[in-house]
Design a protein around this nucleic acid. Structure first.
Lengths: 214, 214, 214, 214
DNA sequence: TATGAATGAGTGTTCATTCAT
DNA sequence: GATGAATGAACACTCATTCAT
């Protein structure tokens, strides 16, 4: 401090090899999710990632390609959550469904997923191929898994007839709605929605509605 | 004349005699809905409204205030659709619900509503007070109406017990999901969803699930 | 000056209708000629033209299109000089040529032409279609005019045989060389070249070399 | 193996054992000559030289110093061509000149010289001291040699009077013009110029124009 | 010596907003 | 009221240069 005026500490140049791209993607995700694509400044992404703007361009050719990388990254990260919830097809359908919706209510709403879903909805028009990625990698597998679960349960006589894919939407729709409801209205209104109660009641209702009449 | 997809080049001839603000809002809505707030250029709005950029500022102080005006405008226009579907509380619940969901499936998906819903979801983070407007003016009344319908039906013994507001979400969730599904994936994937079938099957399921056990 | 700190006089916004594009082109020419295309900053062009950077984009889509406009502008401006020197085909060839080269020596070296020629040479590789414009609009007409002058003089028996186009280069080459010599070496070396003496002596030499032997 | 036009992608295999600077200069020359100084990226130079960008800085402090090295390098390489054509002062002037211009027409136009001349012209404004190097090392010696050849021939009575330096320009000017003409217009227009014919006819014309009247 | 990741100043371009006409 | 030329702040992207390894 007794040095002359310019004694600003030079921020030490970080080394390579760290997971730079990963850090950048993380930073970008956080900002894209809050501001949307267009309103996110690369300088902010850089700052959040602890690098300088130019550095981004070593890893991503373009703002858009960074955005794509972010979405791609989501697949990997989130497909796991889905898979773990979905592939426990053991036990009777009623039990599996109860567990699954309860888990969604507990974990999903605390995760970044709601914000991500909102972002994908927001940008799907500007990046059409993004929505196909999202569809192919996340939505279709998830819906597919549930559809086949339902079909199996129907085959076992646990559930009555009906298009299993539409049944899947009857099941998931309220959960999606609840998640978006929280995401959109949580901070700006006093309107509170208890996602776990919703999961519980909806599970009961839908199971009763779908069950075999015999 | 349904506006969707790429029908954006249509420069509508000067419409009403002197509703400049209305024309501008209409033009702005069309563009905001497709591109989102940030990616919409005022010059495009002006062109579409058949005026010059500077003219916009005679009616709206700011891009943001134009956006707010657009959202405010939505209420008036679209609450009607909702209201007509919702306020026919006459007849047994099963019948009212059947009619209502069928109507949503038929009319809503052809209207601008899906795109608007998407837009509101997209921008809710950047315009928090906007989502409260949306909540207070559209969502809460609609959900409230349905909630009280359900409560009445419960009182009449048509439906079994359960939080009527959560029941409302069980009912509406799959419709919302279906609408968003179409909106987001329609153009970029081959995945098709028949909203009317969904409405039919979901009505049956949910009525059975909710009905009084005697 | 007794006002508060921010009493910086706002530079008055200039009106439209002036020859804005013309002023911009003029400013751009001056800078392109000195720095070349790449090293010229649009901010400098704007400043020199008395406008702000953004204003340039009302008239020119792109830096490159501004550059093209500059070159296009040159054609118009300079074709006149050429035409006036060239279309005086009256009188015997010896006299016409003497006058023409003398005029080139006097006027051209004082004009912007040497710098422009240098610029065109410099950028011809980066903007290939630019050199065709330059060729078609300036060089070919000029060389063509001189070629037909020579052919006429040959037909009249004033000049001996020989390809008139090559003769034209024998005539013009030293003038071009002299002009470039001055342009390139004038400021950085003490080496001086008297263009008028060159014109005089070269005229004599070349006339003697080309004249009919009869 | 003449380098011209688009033959730039050729990544020449590692050449001499340890002439890194030489390889870099060679690569830089090739690119400067085509793109000019400003538009040439050091990363491209590095790639072409088979090294990495950082390595350049081991040999050259700065882009500019690399450019200077390139120009300096030119002298050595190309003065030879000129010297061999010029220093055969044996025999009568007519014969020497005939041979010299023919040789220029044949060899020079196939060499890198035209492109180099273009580059020097192009950058002379941005690098004034460069043009003095070019002047002192290449142009002045060459012109000086020719000037003294002419003076000798005048002393011997082979040529008539006249400033020998201006005569030298009368001789060389059309060759320079022809070379630049090809360099600039060859690829972008169909206009073809036969340099050898020009050399032949110009030689005849100028010799006749300069010869002693007895 | 060589590498290549990181830097950061700089440039072209866009666009909401203003203001003289 | 309407226009559209002009503004200027902001942003994506580039590239010569540096430095830890």
């Amino acid at each position: 401090m007794t040095q002359d005026g310019k004694a600003l500490e030079v921020p030490p140049r970080r080394r390579r090899k760290d997971d730079r791209p990963g850090e950048i993607i993380e930073a970008a995700l956080a900002l894209f999710v809050v501001n949307g694509f267009a309103a996110t400044k690369l300088s902010d992404v850089a700052q959040r990632a602890g690098v300088v703007k130019g550095t981004l361009y070593r890893y991503f050719d373009t703002k858009e390609s960074l955005f794509r990388a972010v979405v791609q990254h989501l697949q990997v990260e989130n497909l796991e959550v889905v898979r773990q919830a979905g592939l426990q097809e053991t036990g009777p359908f009623a039990q599996v469904l109860t567990t699954m919706l309860a888990r969604i209510a507990q974990t999903v709403s605390e995760s970044k997923i709601p914000a991500i879903v909102r972002m994908v909805l927001a940008e799907s028009r500007s990046f059409p191929d993004l929505s196909s990625i999202w569809h192919d990698e996340i939505v279709a597998p998830m819906l597919g898994a549930m559809t086949s679960m339902i079909a199996s349960a129907q085959a076992r006589g646990e559930l009555g007839p009906g298009d299993p894919r539409l049944h899947a939407m009857s099941i998931m729709g309220p959960m999606l709605m609840g998640i978006l409801y929280q995401e959109v209205f949580r901070s700006s209104t006093n309107d509170w929605l208890d996602l776990e109660s919703l999961a519980r009641q909806h599970t009961a209702t839908i199971l009763k509605g779908m069950k075999s009449d015999l």
